[in-house]
Design a binder for these strands. Structure first.
Length: 299
DNA sequence: CATATGTCCTGAGAGC
DNA sequence: TGCTCTCAGGACATAT
């Protein structure tokens, strides 16, 4: 399930398309129900035809293709979507394709960009000009790699929600999903059940610091490919960060920090939460920055 | 307004 | 073996 590190890896992986011109956009033959596309694929194709791709950006868990003429294609992979330059895992779940014409001397630039999605919950939407700001950016919080402790605290310090649940709210901060919420709270030494309005300034600081450490480390390993094997980078290769998860999907295992078999699984807002019952006590330890950095670089 | 729940979807794995 | 059931969870719509 692509979260910020996986989507950032997709973004980096498709950078070779920058500068290419879009020859055509279509939905390859697909037996499945079409994914959500706005406007229709016909309109999208007409708008994009002949235009140059200027940049590829990311906002939270979305990839944004910035296209000549103030057009933005926003791709949301959601649970199982992949943005690919290489052959997809299967033919039958291909959902969207851009046929490309490399510019100038870039002979080896890719000839197509694909959106593949097994479960079909992902979306592809086209926005023009200010629509991107009005309909996408304004609805999302600051990107999780850019947020600072003070603004996160200001957004949540009156909320009664559990910190882990609040971190999953994309209008608060964009990019954190179930896996990385668990990992970052473990690094920060904070109980995922802690109410936001009870956290101290020092704890908010640790949350933001741990967020950066975990997400950057995961990006460096090209994201997490879980046991279902769905997530792949733009070249259809597995990520590597699953080998470094400290608590996610490790219920009843030994905690890598305290050495006790204390990793627990609970359910919050219908999602699994994994944490160490010893290292993430509510009142909590207060590991300093050095400890966070040491525990990361040791891996 | 803040927060909670239901919904979409497929394939893996459990249990019989 | 093959069937049915449950589960995973991102984001949005709807309810409280």
């Amino acid at each position: 399930m692509p979260e910020l590190p996986e989507v950032e890896t997709m973004r980096r992986g498709v950078l070779p398309i920058v500068g290419s011109r879009i020859v055509a956009a279509d939905c390859p033959p697909c037996e499945r129900r079409p994914i959500l596309m706005r406007p229709s694929i016909r309109t999208i194709a007409r708008q994009l035809q002949g235009r140059r791709i200027e940049r590829v950006e990311r906002l939270g868990k979305r990839v944004i293709l910035c296209i000549e003429g103030e057009l933005s294609v926003v791709i949301e992979p959601r649970m199982t979507g992949l943005v690919l330059l290489a052959d997809p895992p299967t033919r039958e779940h291909l959902r969207f394709r851009l046929q490309l014409e490399p510019s100038g001397a870039a002979f080896d630039a890719p000839r197509e960009l694909l959106f593949w999605d097994r479960r079909g919950l992902g979306t592809v939407r086209l926005f023009k000009g200010a629509e991107l700001e009005q309909q996408v950016r304004s609805k999302l919080g600051q990107d999780a790699l850019l947020i600072d402790a003070e603004s996160l605290r200001e957004k949540l310090n009156r909320s009664r929600r559990a910190i882990k649940v609040a971190l999953l709210d994309q209008s608060v901060v964009a990019g954190i999903g179930n896996l990385y919420a668990a990992e970052l709270l473990f690094l920060a030494g904070i109980d995922p059940r802690s109410r936001c309005d009870q956290l101290t300034k020092a704890q908010w600081k640790r949350i933001v610091m741990a967020t950066r450490v975990v997400l950057e480390d995961a990006i460096a390993h090209e994201g997490s490919t879980l046991s279902d094997g769905t997530y792949r980078n733009a070249l259809n290769q597995s990520g590597g960060y699953q080998n470094y998860h400290r608590v996610y999907d490790r219920a009843d295992e030994i905690c890598p920090r305290c050495g006790e078999d204390s990793i627990r699984r609970i359910v919050q807002a219908q999602r699994s939460t994994f944490f160490c019952g010893v290292c993430q006590k509510k009142r909590g330890l207060h590991p300093d920055v050095a400890e966070i950095e040491v525990s990361t670089s040791l891996e």
